[in-house]
Nucleic acid binder design. Sequence first.
RNA 1: GGAGGGGUGGCCGAGCGGUCAAUGGCAGCAGACUGUAAAUCUGCCGGGUUCGCCCUACGAAGGUUCAAAUCCUUCCCCCUCCA
Length: 416
Amino acid sequence: MATFKSELINTLSQRGYLHQCTDLDALDAKAASSVITGYVGYDATADSLHIGNLVSIMMLRRMQQTGHRPIALMGGGTTKIGDPSGRDEVRALADDATIVSRIASIQTTFDRFLKFGSGPTDAILSNNAQWLDKLEYIPFLRDVGKHFTINRMLTMDSVKLRLEREQPLTFLEFNYMILQGYDFVELFHRHGCTLQMGGSDQWGNIVQGVDLGRRMANSDLFGFTSPLITLSSGAKMGKSVSGAVWLSAHRLSPYDYYQFWRNTEDADVGRFMKLFTDLPLDEIARYEALQGAEINEGKKKLALEATALLHGIDNATAAAETARKTFEEGSAGDDLPTVTKSKAEIEAGYTITTANVEIGFAASKNEARRKIQEGSVKINDEKISDENYKLTEQDFRDGAVKISLGKKKFGIIKLK
RNA sequence: GGAGGGGUGGCCGAGCGGUCAAUGGCAGCAGACUGUAAAUCUGCCGGGUUCGCCCUACGAAGGUUCAAAUCCUUCCCCCUCCA
């Protein structure tokens, strides 16, 4: 089974993270004989990372698990430029204050996956604003710009595709790959970082960094990318009942995160366990062998383990218990979205329509009315077909009403 | 600088004076079937509503008309060809 010399590359390869590598054999040899420092960069395009970032976060985690040193690089500087990769339109650029607050919010996610500190394999959190913000234009062009040819840059997918589609590419964005390449060299000088990882869409940017390292620092740097993770049905990964799958709890609750994994397609269970949990491969193989409805046991395990990594075992267990009560017992668990109402508010007339909106099931009252007419709204498991139905004290059992939309969305209205 | 074409709902894309909150497709939501799976089929898919209607919307601002996404004027932006 072990086809590589190093534990790092064996792990990355066996668990499904390997897509492309600039020099796999050399990297493998190096990882077998020394501690490698490697990084992944994250731009602050929102105040939370999302499921699409999780593969690379797990790669950093695998590095640490196999005795190497990961760096999470926050793109405080590059976010001001905007990565054109895979986009047809210029990004809406955030102002400095927004970027700083987003980074502060994002950083907490890494504490769950990596152990930071000053030991030889302790993770490092860095921010490229530290060096990019104070670059001087002419010196930068002379030191770094001279190593990039326009000819080469025009062949990069991020540029070429935009031009082929006749979409505008600003000079600002055109510089993104140069700055990302420069990051790599900077991290090499600061921390001896010799590896950059990322998703397959980052290949071009990463390779530019590897080349720049050879030219500027005469150093051997490595690039490693993971495949784009899609569902077996072909869809892009990243939909939960309440929209995008965010990693920050303020954007997506641990319960909803658990539910996202619980609803994994059958064919993806084993693959996702390898990528997104620490379960040993032989245990994963046992779950993969399950057939038919038994696969649900694997989904529960996947959901529990993946949620525990991000939100802690206590939150994961609570989410699992809420799911069990809600779906298997038909009662209501504690982690469901909750709205609290006073007795006076109920007496003043609180309609089922408003309740659906307040609990987040519908974006507007019209949508809530439609759902009621479609017969998908229930109160305490009783279908409600009157859109003007007002909750009464009789609806409250032990001070709470269970409200549901469809088969998967549940919420609680509590009486204060 | 000159000539022509175009900007429509989350996206693509019809419409070209009234019957247009605007055909289709994608995405999304719900129902049926199931295993909280996939596939399939069905319905819904701007906001508010006392369910009569009302408001907002077809790049922006004015105008013509009983009536405009559709006609006119000005402005902004994109594309193609010529120089």
